[in-house]
Simulated assay, not measured.
Amino acid sequence: MTPRTRAPVAFIVLGNARSRDLFGAIAALVGYNASMSAFAQSSQPTHDLRQAYLSSLPEPQEWFLEELVEAGQFWTHEDGSYGVLHGQTLVEYFSADAAHAGELLSALHDQTSFSMALAKSFDRPFVQSLKQLGWAASVGGHLFRKRSAYDRTDIAAAQIRPATQDDVQSHWHINDDFFETEDEVRALADRGRLLTVTMDREIAGCGVFQRVIADRDAVDIGMMVAPNVRRKGLGTFIVCAMADRVEAEGLRPICGCGARNTASKATLEKAGFVSNHQLLSFAQGR
Rank of each mutant, 00 (worst) to 15 (best):
L194N: 04
V208L: 03
A271C: 09
T76D: 03
F273C: 04
V197F: 00
Q41R: 15
L57F: 05
E249A: 02
M224Q: 13
L68F: 15
R147D: 07
I213W: 00
N261S: 01
A25Q: 10
Q111K: 07
A7H: 10
F178S: 09
L57N: 04
I203V: 11
V225M: 01
C255R: 06
L105V: 04
C240T: 15
G15T: 06
H142P: 03
Q111A: 08
L143N: 00
R245W: 03
A28D: 14
L57Y: 01
I12G: 01
R4N: 09
F209V: 09
F114W: 13
G72E: 00
S106D: 11
A25V: 10
A243T: 08
C255L: 15
A34L: 00
V127D: 07
F94I: 14
P8R: 13
L105K: 02
Q61S: 06
T89E: 12
L118M: 08
S81P: 06
Q73V: 15
T112C: 01
A187Q: 13
R18A: 14
R124F: 07
A40M: 11
A99G: 15
G31C: 02
L54R: 12
G207P: 07
R18D: 10
Q51I: 09
P162Y: 02
L280S: 09
C257T: 14
E180Q: 02
S35G: 11
N16P: 07
M242E: 05
C240A: 05
T236P: 01
P8L: 08
S275I: 12
L29F: 06
S275R: 09
H171I: 12
Y32W: 15
Q61G: 00
V239K: 03
Q159M: 06
A241I: 06
R230H: 11
A10P: 07
R124M: 11
P125E: 13
S19G: 06
V13K: 01
Q61D: 12
P58W: 05
G233R: 06
G233D: 04
G134P: 05
W63R: 15
T76N: 10
M36D: 11
H77S: 03
S106N: 13
W172N: 04
D190W: 05
R231V: 01
L90H: 14
L251Y: 06
A241W: 02
R231T: 05
A7E: 08
R252M: 12
G250E: 09
L54W: 07
T267Q: 00
A40H: 15
P162H: 05
E59I: 05
T5A: 01
M199Q: 13
A218W: 06
E66S: 10
A157T: 08
L108Y: 14
A52N: 04
R216L: 14
G140D: 08
V225Q: 01
Q61V: 10
M199P: 00
L108F: 11
E103H: 06
